[in-house]
């Protein structure tokens, strides 16, 4: 079976640090940054480059629509 690998791009300056995406991620690979963005919010980032499957769950629950998702087959 072909495996898939995903990745996310977070629009850091528009993220509000609500953490809703963290609870939606089935592989628990989203964390909040320690540093803050221009508005003073910590922002979401992918903490494990190999753990994202590109399922888009985080992106579809993000109230601010700041996550873009990419996915490709590997192997």
């Amino acid at each position: 079976m072909a495996k898939v690998k995903g990745t996310i791009v977070v629009d850091i300056e528009k993220c509000k640090g609500c953490e809703i995406c963290i609870s939606a991620c089935p592989t628990s690979v989203i964390s909040m940054s320690v540093e803050v963005n221009g508005k003073g919010y910590p922002y979401a980032y992918l903490n494990d480059p190999d753990g994202c499957t590109g399922c888009s769950n985080c992106a579809i629950v993000c109230p601010d629509g700041v996550i873009t998702v990419y996915r490709k087959k590997i192997g």
């Binding site: 990745t7 940054s33 480059p49 629509g65 990419y70």
Partner: peptide
């Protein structure tokens, strides 16, 4: 902040599966 962007090689339109609606 740059270190927060990972898997840069995958980030191209061909692999795009979700983006905010226009």
């Amino acid at each position: 902040m740059a270190e927060k962007v990972v898997n840069i090689e995958m980030i191209n339109p061909e692999n795009l599966v979700y983006q905010k609606t226009k």
